[in-house]
Design a protein around this nucleic acid. Structure first.
Length: 283
DNA sequence: CTTCTTGTTACTGA
DNA sequence: ATCAGTAACAAGAA
């Protein structure tokens, strides 16, 4: 499931391959996935690929943008003009190898013969054409990204103090901070040795500081390792897996040993979401 | 068949 | 009005 590190990894690769390419054809395999006037997209040249929170922004020049949120199962797969995956990826599944595939929802074809495929098994993800003003409005719904300098203890602590919900739930609220999802929030809480079930307003300032630093650290590690891949759900645009799953502290490690204290990692539900933590050292 | 999966929003009740 | 908690979205795996 794409969180900030996965989306940022995609952005960096897309920024390497897409700028300068002109959209010559758009095929909608499913009507729900793209909200756009196709004529509005044709002949537009991609200037830059940006990111805010978990949203990618394709800047098409004066007042035209294409935004995408991958939600849980969205993928972007790029095939260059020679029908090869850039970077010599190792396609392992149909949705990388034979495109468009069963879950391909949109196909973009560019002037040089390259193509970008939007796959999304569960149809929660979206792509939308937007003016600059509409982009601003969309982005205004999200708080600063967790890795941005604006997210300081002075910013975060007062927000935690007036919330009684579990700290994990508050950290996942994109109106508090953007970019964290279930994987990295579980790991950040383990690194900071704080229980995900603690009411947010029960954290001391020192604990909030520890948690903030741990969150930034875990997100940075995720970015440096090209994100997290479980079951091939998230892959880079070449079909390549990320590497953070090998470093995960608690996520998807139920019954395994806590790397911090040697305790046994447990999985419980919190706000309807799977929550991994070490009951021995996360207090 | 039921249950589980997740990012975000909509809804409900306090 | 604001906050907390749950349902919903969709499709497939177990």
């Amino acid at each position: 499931m794409p969180e900030l590190p996965e989306v940022e990894t995609l952005r960096r690769r897309l920024q390497e391959v897409l700028p300068g390419k002109t959209i010559v054809q758009v095929t909608q395999h499913h009507p729900k996935s793209l909200q756009a006037d196709l004529a509005w997209l044709y002949d537009q040249t991609i200037k830059e690929v940006k990111r805010k929170a978990k949203i990618l922004q394709f800047d098409l020049g004066p007042d035209k943008n294409l935004l995408t949120h991958l939600k849980m199962t969205g993928q972007l797969i790029f095939i260059d003009s020679n029908q090869n995956r850039v970077g010599g990826g190792h396609p392992t599944a149909d949705w990388v190898q034979n495109l468009p595939a069963k879950h391909t929802r949109i196909t973009y074809s560019f002037d040089d013969g390259s193509q970008l495929f939007f796959n999304d098994q569960r149809l929660f993800g979206w792509m939308k054409a937007m003016t600059d003003a509409e982009v601003d409005q969309e982005f205004s719904k999200y708080a600063h990204d967790i890795d941005q300098p604006e997210v300081t203890l002075e910013y975060l602590y007062p927000l935690l103090q007036r919330r009684r919900s579990a700290i994990k739930v508050v950290l996942l609220d994109p109106k508090v901070v953007s970019g964290l999802g279930n994987i990295y929030v579980c790991d950040a809480l383990n690194l900071a040795q704080i229980s995900p079930f603690r009411p947010a307003n029960s954290l001391s300032q020192a604990e909030a500081g520890r948690l903030l630093e741990a969150s930034k650290r875990v997100i940075q590690l995720g970015v440096e390792n090209n994100g997290t891949t479980f079951d091939g759900s998230y892959v880079n645009i070449d079909g390549l897996a990320g590497g953070y799953q090998n470093l995960a502290l608690v996520y998807a490690r139920e019954g395994e040993t806590c790397k911090n204290c040697g305790g046994t990692i447990q999985k419980e539900k919190l706000a309807g979401r799977g929550t991994y933590y070490c009951p021995n050292c996360q207090l």
